[in-house]
Computed example of a mutant assay.
Amino acid sequence: MGIEIALYDGHPKRSRLPARSLHLSTAHGPALAEALAAHAAPGGRLGAVDPYGDTLLNEQDAAVAFDEATALLARCTTEGQRAAVRDLRNLLANCAATPGSWLIFLGD
């Protein structure tokens, strides 16, 4: 099981105009799923990521989730988890800084 992450310049499922993919992260899928399952705080944005379906975050959600990812990084127990969460933090920061963008977590 793994979770991939895609960053779009608009809503990837509801836009009248097709959203353009800005970045796709596929290198850390299993480690990211493991880190989120083991260490994400329940009730937070990252704790709500569905490992089996799609979860979307807009730019405001991404800004909040960035702080959660920073705390998550401190709780990771393997280098693979840490690399996955560092990649996640970069994507969350890019999403938060890009007006109208969306981040989608693509679960297995």
Rank of each mutant, 00 (worst) to 15 (best):
E34Y: 08
L36T: 05
L36C: 04
A37D: 13
A38T: 03
H39L: 02
H39A: 10
H39C: 11
P42F: 07
P42E: 08
G43K: 02
G43V: 04
G43I: 00
G43Q: 01
G44T: 09
G44V: 00
R45W: 04
L46F: 08
G47W: 04
G47C: 05
A48G: 12
V49E: 07
V49R: 11
P51Q: 10
P51G: 10
Y52L: 15
G53R: 12
D54Q: 15
L56H: 14
L56R: 15
L57P: 03
N58I: 10
E59L: 07
Q60V: 08
D61M: 04
D61L: 04
A62R: 09
A63R: 07
F66P: 05
D67A: 11
A69W: 02
A69H: 06
T70P: 00
A71H: 11
A71P: 01
L72I: 06
L72T: 01
A74R: 10
A74Q: 12
A74D: 12
R75P: 05
C76I: 07
C76E: 03
T77G: 15
T78G: 05
E79A: 10
E79P: 06
G80Y: 05
G80R: 14
R82M: 01
A83F: 03
V85E: 04
V85A: 13
R86A: 14
R86W: 05
R86C: 10
D87Y: 02
D87I: 02
L88A: 01
L88C: 04
L91C: 08
